[in-house]
């Protein structure tokens, strides 16, 4: 039989078990770091994304498809409504959402973050590249949509950034190109070279 003295032991054992589980690892609750998505990434692994996006999404993606169809450079003979719609020049108010998001929230935001992180004194090549790609993307953005948010854009604190005139943006684009050229003329002082991207580039 179980005696009186041993009853508290069962309790104690349970409490100790609990204490070990909770206190045993001091940071029991400290598991809120995503093991599958880092909070930081080096610019060398981010540049290929922007370059690919420029080609595959901005040129080959939806805006590119529409342009070649409307120019009657290509034509589709598919059993698909979306194509009917496009060929009738029917653009819905959300048709370009994907392209708009990609330009701003992926291309331009990524380039902005890269330029903020790169020290132009140490790594002028990457800085210049990022600046050049940003200039190119801005030009493409205003080419597509006309007046677009520019000065107030890419600031999460501003939910509805003001639109800027195309003329303002093109002037800024030219200035950015000049800065990019100037930066690329500098000699890089970074210690570690960029990861190879020969196969991707070809």
């Amino acid at each position: 039989m179980f005696d009186m003295k041993r009853t508290p032991m069962a309790q104690t054992a349970s409490i100790v078990l609990l204490a070990v589980l909770v206190g045993g690892c001091e940071n029991f609750l400290d598991v809120n770091t995503d093991p599958n998505a880092p909070v930081n990434a080096r610019v060398e692994v981010r540049l290929p994304t922007v370059v690919t996006g420029m080609v595959h999404t901005v040129y080959y993606g939806d805006p590119g498809q529409w342009t070649v169809e409307w120019m009657q450079q290509t034509s589709y003979n598919r059993d698909s409504r979306s194509y009917d719609e496009l060929q009738l020049y029917e653009v819905q108010d959300n048709s370009a959402n994907g392209a708009w998001s990609y330009h701003y929230a992926t291309m331009l935001n990524e380039l902005k973050l890269m330029m903020e992180e790169i020290d132009p004194e140490v790594d002028p090549a990457y800085y210049g590249l990022a600046k050049f790609l940003a200039a190119w993307t801005w030009a493409h953005t205003t080419d597509l949509w006309g007046p677009v948010p520019f000065a107030e854009a890419l600031d999460p604190a501003i939910a509805t950034p003001a639109y800027d005139e195309q003329s303002t943006i093109y002037a800024q684009v030219l200035a950015m190109m000049d800065e990019a050229v100037a930066a690329m003329k500098q000699t890089s002082r970074r210690r570690r070279g960029p990861t190879t991207c020969s196969s991707a580039a070809t």
Binding site: A37, R46, G61
Partner: peptide, 13 residues
């Protein structure tokens, strides 16, 4: 966070 990237192409048809 950063994610392994992908570049979407055409979304239609």
């Amino acid at each position: 966070r950063y994610y392994a990237a992908s570049a979407p192409g055409v979304h239609q048809g």
